[in-house]
Design a protein around this nucleic acid. Structure first.
Length: 229
DNA sequence: GCGACAG
DNA sequence: ATCTTGTCGC
């Protein structure tokens, strides 16, 4: 894929939380929330896992054919873990490894599904939005739980949803991707609209809670593929 | 000041 | 996220 300047995408961690938050606010102003993605030929799923008790960050990127949802390529990138997990600053910890994995894919994806929040974040820059802004790629955030925001009870069937609100604004949606299963927290990351994000999640999944791109990347990042044990 | 808090 | 077996339910 097109090479990315990993050095400047995320500054080295210096322990300054206030400074990191300031940068997030600046980058959030560059998020584009209108549908502006190309015909979807190849989509990717990315996720991060850890090894060596957390000392090593392991990022996975899976490229899929958007028609068959079959994996076309898989990449795993390892980097020394740079900082601890701090709620709200997840991207500073996981993005560097994620960008490396993404850059090693044989093709640039037309859309990237990221494990985590898109704009459903205190400052509007969850990891999916951050990834979108620094790469320019269309992204969607698919999280398993809420970081911020509240919502009404969601219906029991696949496709049922409720808006996720924060400080009087709709920042995403709580979507039931499978009957009777805990809903997903979906929010656009970049170049995808609030209305389209959940539609794409439903379009790229069916029999599992997570959409296929995210599910495959999840398995690979957690090294829990069919092999292991 | 007291909780909450993506992965 | 990760440490971890069997077990309850669709």
């Amino acid at each position: 894929m097109t090479s990315i300047d990993i050095t400047h995408a995320v500054p080295p961690w210096d322990g300054n939380v206030a400074k990191a938050r300031q940068l997030q606010s600046e980058l959030a102003a560059r998020v584009h929330l209108e549908d502006d993605y190309p015909p979807l030929r190849h989509v990717a799923g990315v996720d991060v896992g850890f090894e060596e008790g957390g000392a090593v960050t392991r990022a996975a990127a899976v490229l899929l054919d958007s028609q068959t949802l079959a994996p076309i390529a898989e990449v795993v990138a390892r980097q020394p873990t740079r900082m601890p997990y701090i709620p709200g600053l997840l991207s500073f910890r996981e993005l560097p490894a994620l960008l490396q994995a993404l850059s090693e894919l044989p093709q640039t994806p037309d859309l990237v599904f990221v494990d985590g929040q898109g704009v459903a974040h205190p400052r509007g820059l969850g990891i999916a939005a951050h990834l979108g802004v620094v790469t320019g790629l269309p992204t969607i955030g698919v999280a398993k739980s809420i970081l911020v925001g509240t919502h009404e009870e969601v219906g029991p069937h696949r496709g049922d949803r409720q808006p996720l609100e924060y400080k009087g604004e709709v920042i995403g949606c709580v979507l039931r991707s499978k009957d009777g299963i805990r809903p997903l927290i979906v929010s656009p990351g970049h170049r995808v609209s609030m209305a389209t994000a959940p539609e794409l999640v439903l379009a790229f999944g069916r029999k599992y809670r997570l959409p296929e791109p995210t599910r495959l990347a999840d398995r690979l990042a957690s090294r829990r593929g069919t092999l292991r044990r």
